[in-house]
Design a protein around this nucleic acid. Structure first.
Lengths: 228, 228
DNA sequence: CGGTGGATTGACGGTTGTCAACTTGCGTGG
DNA sequence: CCACGCAAGTTGACAACCGTCAATCCACCG
């Protein structure tokens, strides 16, 4: 018996590759944390001391330039892996966007354990490759897309991850973050994001019942706006 | 005896992890290609059929949006790994910027081989993690930096990779590509790149002996311009 | 009811993209 | 060897887009 047997992401996190005995060993290295919204789990430039799995909540990976401009590098959801194994420095901070639960491991211990468990490394490799694909796709958005395309693409991405259908058959979801977070993710300013969302609402492609809520009224049109 | 024994990247590519017997097995799956400048090795959207190592030359990874805007995702140098193992589709094209030599493997065969060779997968994981760090750093450039910062950062990156010292102690190098390639990499237009380079020359931070040649005259200043 | 912080809106200016003309370098063929 | 043509790069004029700064709005909370 260990904490993993009741873990809600047991079947989706990289741990899924481990047999019971190995899971037990890993469980003994790990430690569960609760993180309050807004708190950081790791800091950019820190010695990369921990890695881990997200159990619950939403977090962001973020870096800042010397003069204080922020860029969010990605959003992290339950069952996603966080941190930088096999490397000494973290190139980004990890900050909780909502209250969150994570399961962390000391990096050195994790590295050693992983080297002895090829199945685990294989899972990690697959995840890392997928994450690389995702970040490259994001590079296209940041390098070549206009503000309206970025916002449309962002909303579709959220709809895919968080969307549920309402009684009218429209996709509905609650944004896990505020306008500043969206701006940091899209490489825009808060004002530009706000204007684009207003425009999408005026064009009746989406509705915004409240600050964080989004209802997608015309998905096809939104996809056209996103420029695939 | 096999082709690997004389391979110039033998000690740096992921193959370095293999013992002689395994190297021999891998060598039998592999095939050497020569690619002429401008030719593509893989196409975006293709079924990902091959992976491999760069032996010689410089290549770029690139994607285009539906309406034809290009974004370069990264530059690939000798000993770097190319292609997408453990996945069915390639999200980008790979195009030779100079005449190049590569050593390719059918993807399915490579995947099978890798799964049986944890040391190889470990090397691949480390490379992928490094590549992910790099692409995230590039996201900051694309999302938050001005045209002048991008060009300065780009030139410094090239100087680090390709630079040699001339008799005056200045870093000198030959760009492996033209202005359009630089623009695609930095998420700018060819005209903006040209203007920024002209400005750097007027400010005497660099000299441009010919189309492709760059001499860094004031590295410190250039680093300041790049915004770390 | 007032205060606070996030979001929106407006006015304006700067940076970058667009379009077009022009220059430069280089190879080819007369 | 020179003339020509082509491709790549540079420069200029202009417009669009987005960022900046400031005012205002709105929801939420004491």
């Amino acid at each position: 018996m260990n904490a993993c047997t009741t873990c809600t992401v047991r079947e989706k996190a990289i741990c899924q590759s481990l047999c019971d005995a190995d899971l037990d060993a890993m469980s003994q290295m790990g430690r569960r944390h609760t993180i309050a919204r807004g708190e950081a789990l790791m800091w950019q430039g820190d010695k990369a001391m921990v890695v881990g799995n997200v159990i619950e909540g939403v977090l962001k990976m973020t870096t800042s330039t010397a003069d204080g401009r922020d860029q969010t590098l990605g959003i992290v959801y339950p069952s996603d892996f966080i941190g930088r194994p096999f490397g000494s420095k973290s190139s980004h901070s990890v900050v909780a966007l909502s209250d969150a639960k994570v399961c962390t491991f000391p990096r050195a211990a994790f590295d050693r354990f992983a080297q002895g468990h090829p199945e685990l490394e294989h899972k990690l490799l697959q995840r890392t490759l997928t994450e690389l694909d995702r970040s490259r796709q994001w590079m296209v958005l940041l390098g070549r897309k206009s503000a309206s395309e970025r916002v449309a693409a962002f909303l579709l991405d959220m709809a895919r991850r968080l969307g549920t259908e309402d009684s009218d058959g429209h996709v509905v979801f609650e944004l896990p973050f505020g306008r500043q977070d969206i701006a940091d993710l899209l490489g825009l300013t808060i004002e530009t994001v706000s204007r684009q969302i207003t425009k999408l609402r005026e064009d009746r492609m989406i509705a915004t019942p409240d600050r964080r809520g989004i209802i997608v009224l015309d998905r096809q049109w939104l996809e056209d706006c996103a420029g695939e």
